[in-house]
Simulated scan of single mutants.
Amino acid sequence: MKTCMHHRAKRCGYLGMALLLAAALALPAAAHAINQDEKTGKTDVTATVEDPNAPSYTVEIPAKIDFGTFAKPTSNQPEEVSVSFNVGVTAVSNLGAQKVAVRVHDTANRQTFMLAASRTPANVLEYDIEHSGASIKANDYVIPGGYQLFAASMVTTISYDAVLDKAQLFEKDESYNDAYTGTLTFYAQLVTS
């Protein structure tokens, strides 16, 4: 009996602490204190009014591109690993004569797409991004943003391939057996046709 009462009291104590914490979190944080020494205080009041006719768009980019796990090649013959992904304008409104231009670049080295080894970052794997079998590097490199993927004035989704040639690993030493990561930066901007 004593044990049951002890557990019940303990549960009530935890419940009470949880209720007090919830009540404290529900109160807004005071930006300024008013007291006997400081009898007045000021609070900023703001509002944002959006133009209902302002252009707007949404671009969907891949969350992750994963080349998977593979062994080093036994020859220097091209052997590509390819991963398809989509980039799309999923919503547009009030664009008028403008288009949404979508661009991409490698975050670490803007004009070369690379993955760096986690243990030895100087060890890199280069890859390319292709559309319909052609490298996007043939497109203009625009600052800001990078290689032009496309410009659209309506909802559009385009498929691309990230392509890595395993031949670049041929006869590399054991330090190349590693996990590799990189980051793509996508950029969207309204442009005039």
Score class of each variant (00 low, 15 high):
Lys99Gln: 11
Thr74Ala: 14
Asp165Thr: 10
Asn123Ser: 12
Ile136Pro: 03
Asp173His: 01
Ala9Phe: 04
Thr58Met: 11
Asp140Ile: 04
Ala151Thr: 04
Leu190His: 05
Val59Thr: 02
Asn109Asp: 05
Ala71Arg: 06
Leu19Asp: 03
Tyr176Gly: 03
Val81Trp: 08
Asn76Val: 08
Glu174Asp: 11
Val100Cys: 11
Arg11Ala: 15
Asn139Arg: 12
Ser175Ala: 14
Thr58Lys: 12
Lys2Trp: 04
Glu60Trp: 02
Ser56Glu: 01
Ala71Lys: 09
Leu21Ser: 13
Ile136Glu: 08
Ile129Tyr: 03
Ser159Tyr: 07
Thr183Gly: 08
Gln168Pro: 10
Ile158His: 10
Asp106Glu: 02
Ala134Asn: 14
His105Phe: 01
Leu95Ile: 07
Gly13Met: 06
Val81His: 14
Gln77Lys: 13
Ala122Ser: 13
His7Thr: 14
Asn94Thr: 02
Pro121Glu: 06
Asp173Glu: 06
Val124Trp: 02
Phe170Thr: 09
Glu126Ser: 12
Leu27Ala: 10
Met5Thr: 04
Ala167Leu: 13
Ala23Met: 04
Ala97Ser: 06
Gln111Cys: 09
Ala9Met: 09
Val191Lys: 05
Met17Glu: 04
Arg119Asp: 13
Val163Arg: 14
Gly182Ile: 03
Val45Cys: 06
Ser135Gly: 09
Ala26Cys: 03
Val104Trp: 02
Asp128Tyr: 06
Met114Tyr: 01
Ala108Cys: 02
Ala30His: 00
Asn139Ser: 13
Gly145His: 00
Asn177Thr: 05
